[in-house]
Design a protein around this nucleic acid. Structure first.
Lengths: 318, 318
DNA sequence: CCAATTAATACTCATTTCGAGTATATATAT
DNA sequence: ATATATATACTCGAAATGAGTATTAATTGG
């Protein structure tokens, strides 16, 4: 157990999320030629008191964001899932194995630093946006390919397992939270570019690929955020200080990738006491002006789990 | 970014949980004189493909458990929260900073390895067991001390924040999932031994202390398990292959630290299709024999989120 | 065999929450 | 004045929840 051999370096990656004109966006570092990457920096044990303070420190240096809310997602240490685009297998930071700790951060500030840009997260996960329709690619591309994946299993038992996973992920009853499960399934089935890259080959896949395992971290972030929405008032970290109820609904819909029933959404927000009117009104280009609301900080004290349980799938756009 | 300075070693700690005669128990390493510790081993990047496989490997070596279910909890890297009992501040594994990745593991095998023993988890968190009554120590010790903690805040604003935290953690409406929040509050308020030890002093506190930050990891494990219970059929990992419905209920109650309404519990289990009868019956010392049930693996396919939403606080013991 | 005890199991009922509507009111643009 | 877009109010049935009561089936001690 001599220390030298057990040594690794730790990368802190952040999925920094905002919502802009009804699109959830994530901050990426995009050099031309290479894949988009999440901003990440090394954990420096000499100067960082905690992992999170390390994250905040270099995010603060590289961008001007004050991260309103941060949450640790998961720590990945898989060999072979940290391959750079080139193919320089698993090496980085002078040969030490890299373990990456992923974070979710929410912000409403939207002035990006140089070298970085905001991109809609559905670029990376086009099958996750069900707001308008069930994405056509699911039936035209994904399900046929997954059918083949099931068929290619080594034996009947493995095939059954695969069939179940396919059904849970893309079958009846869309569960918007299973973002990571779906990504991992597509990875294993060879439907995303990272699968080929990690295997040392090359090949195309669905959605836009990301550096290292960053798309996996982003998938984890989306899943976590979609879940959290329902029992913690986290959306408000993404909203302007004052907003209309429809704007709030659109933000939630954007994140969840689902449409909600307007009247019920309002009922919920009102019952939970999540917001309070400001007395001011929006000035829309057309249509009746809506009252502007602000987040009622008080809920945090009163309610044990104030959130926006979405519940409703479907529901007219009305 | 020179590698040498960013290097840390990673410890994998596991809260291995079982349920025995209506008590949730956790496997601890107990040397005399030193605090109880969770079993932990180093992550070895040269031989472990993933963090989880590293964990399984050394758990398998040191104990004979097949961990039915494992789940990563959280990665802690706080300086000063990894202090051994002696006071050899923050040093371990040849001076490298230790980052610990905590895992929750569930098992039903109950034959402990040498040097280890099973201990009820309420030894470490006596305020978390509300099955019989609201623990008396909350009113007699905790709340008075927290009142003082609020009063000792530096200014009115800080006091208000503290008051809110106290209320959320120990006020009206017990939320059995906030195990970690409560432990952290007690830590900051100087009500647990680890607080003094990490500060280089000594002092007594509530419950039994553990080595390093292991009690924090255990708190995370309990919180996670209590939450998961409600939407995933994880209890069954802890049950014998056949069990009565009351045994199942007692196990859930033990984990949640709450009593449940018997009839409603059964209705739930039945409706969800979580179990199926075996046709055999228990042979109790006294009372009417109950049918033995087994877990219906099928649910995993059928239901999106089969679990045992507890809901009911209180409810007669009946 | 009887009573006391222990637990299983069946059924009821009011309340709350949910999902999906309809109806109406208030703006602007033309 | 009308079309359009939106806000807001209210209704209604279905399902889920929380808390019971009532009844049945077994064992044990007398």
């Amino acid at each position: 157990m001599s220390a030298k051999y057990n040594v690794v370096s730790i990368g802190l990656s952040a999925a920094i999320v905002a919502v802009e004109s009804e699109q959830p966006v994530v901050l990426v570092v995009a050099h031309d030629g290479s894949d988009d990457a999440l901003p990440f920096g090394p954990f420096d044990p000499a100067h960082h008191r905690t992992l999170e303070s390390g994250l905040r420190k270099w995010v603060g240096e590289q961008t001007r964001f004050d991260l309103g809310y941060t949450e640790q997602l998961y720590t990945f240490g898989d060999k072979g899932r940290h391959t750079p685009t080139g193919g320089d297998k698993g090496r980085q930071s002078g040969g030490a194995r890299v373990v990456s700790v992923g974070y979710l951060a929410l912000t409403r500030r939207v002035k990006e630093a140089p070298e970085t840009q905001w991109r809609g997260w559905y670029h990376y996960f086009p099958w996750e946006d069900w707001r308008d329709t069930r994405p056509a690619m699911i039936d035209s591309v994904i399900l046929p390919a997954l059918k083949k994946f099931v068929k290619d299993a080594l034996n009947a038992e493995a095939a059954e397992l695969r069939r179940e996973r396919v059904n849970v992920c893309f079958g009846e009853g869309w569960d918007e939270e299973r973002v990571l499960e779906r990504y991992e399934l597509l990875y294993e089935a060879g439907l995303v570019e990272e699968f080929y890259r990690d295997g040392g080959k090359s090949g195309a896949g669905l959605g836009t690929a990301m550096l290292f395992d960053h798309r996996r971290i982003l998938a984890t972030a989306i899943a976590r955020l979609r879940g959290k929405l329902k029992y913690r008032p986290v959306v408000f970290e993404l909203m302007a200080p004052a907003f209309t109820l429809l704007e709030l609904q659109r933000a939630v819909e954007a994140l969840a990738g689902l449409r909600l029933h307007k009247q019920n959404f309002r009922r919920l927000v009102a019952e939970q006491g999540l917001v309070e009117g400001t007395g001011k009104f929006s000035a829309p280009a057309r249509g009746r002006p809506a009252e502007l609301f602000r987040f009622r900080r008080g809920v945090l004290r009163e309610r044990p789990a104030p959130g926006l349980r979405l519940g409703s799938r479907r529901g007219k756009t009305s």
